[in-house]
Simulated scan of single mutants.
Amino acid sequence: MSVHFAPGARTAWHSHAVGQTLYVTEGVALTQERGGEVVTVHPGQAVTCGPGVEHWHGAHPDHLMTHLSIWEAPEPGSDVAESTWLEHVADDGAGR
């Protein structure tokens, strides 16, 4: 799925029952795993979050951003929810 973010837009903290890979196609992305550092991702780069890892992602405040969001397939017949949404990221972007 291709997702477009306006400058400074971001998701809330969330996790996926299965892994997720984000491949940035334009702009500049920011992402952070809970307890980790904010990471900058540029076009042509990808970042992967493992199953159940709480994280957020969005556009740098000065740049729009588009990424392809790729999920691992759940086991056939699994009743696994796609995402679990949590609290919003602090406005300073350092939502530790």
Results as ranks from 00 to 15, higher is better:
S2V: 11
H4I: 10
H4G: 12
F5P: 00
F5H: 08
F5M: 11
A6R: 12
P7V: 03
P7F: 03
P7W: 02
G8C: 01
G8M: 01
G8H: 00
A9H: 12
A9C: 08
R10F: 07
R10M: 07
T11Q: 02
T11S: 14
T11K: 04
A12D: 14
A12N: 14
A12K: 12
A12W: 09
W13C: 01
W13A: 02
W13I: 01
W13G: 00
H14W: 04
S15Q: 06
S15Y: 06
H16R: 02
H16T: 06
H16L: 04
A17W: 00
V18H: 05
G19Y: 01
G19E: 10
G19L: 02
Q20P: 00
T21W: 00
L22Q: 05
L22A: 11
Y23N: 08
Y23H: 13
Y23L: 14
V24Q: 08
V24S: 07
V24L: 12
T25A: 10
E26L: 05
G27D: 11
G27F: 06
G27R: 04
G27T: 05
V28Y: 06
V28L: 13
V28F: 06
A29G: 15
A29T: 02
A29V: 02
L30V: 09
L30E: 10
T31P: 01
T31N: 12
T31E: 06
T31Q: 08
Q32S: 12
Q32M: 14
E33R: 14
E33S: 15
E33Y: 09
E33L: 13
E33N: 10
R34N: 14
R34S: 15
R34V: 13
R34E: 15
G35Y: 10
G35N: 11
G36Y: 08
E37Q: 15
V38H: 09
V38Y: 06
V38A: 15
V38Q: 15
V39E: 15
V39K: 14
V39H: 14
T40G: 14
T40S: 14
T40W: 04
T40D: 13
T40C: 13
P43Q: 11
P43K: 09
P43C: 13
G44K: 07
G44Q: 09
G44R: 05
Q45F: 03
Q45E: 15
A46R: 01
T48P: 00
T48H: 09
T48N: 03
T48A: 11
C49H: 11
C49L: 09
C49M: 13
G50D: 11
G50Y: 03
P51E: 13
P51V: 07
G52D: 13
G52E: 12
G52A: 11
G52S: 11
V53K: 10
E54W: 02
E54L: 08
E54G: 03
E54I: 01
H55G: 04
H55W: 00
W56F: 04
W56M: 02
W56A: 02
W56Y: 05
W56R: 06
H57V: 01
G58M: 05
A59E: 01
H60P: 00
H60G: 04
P61R: 03
P61L: 04
P61Y: 05
P61C: 08
L64K: 07
L64P: 08
L64W: 08
M65P: 00
T66M: 07
T66V: 08
T66P: 02
H67I: 00
H67K: 06
H67L: 08
L68W: 07
L68K: 02
L68V: 12
L68E: 14
L68Y: 09
S69P: 04
S69H: 04
S69N: 11
I70F: 08
E72F: 03
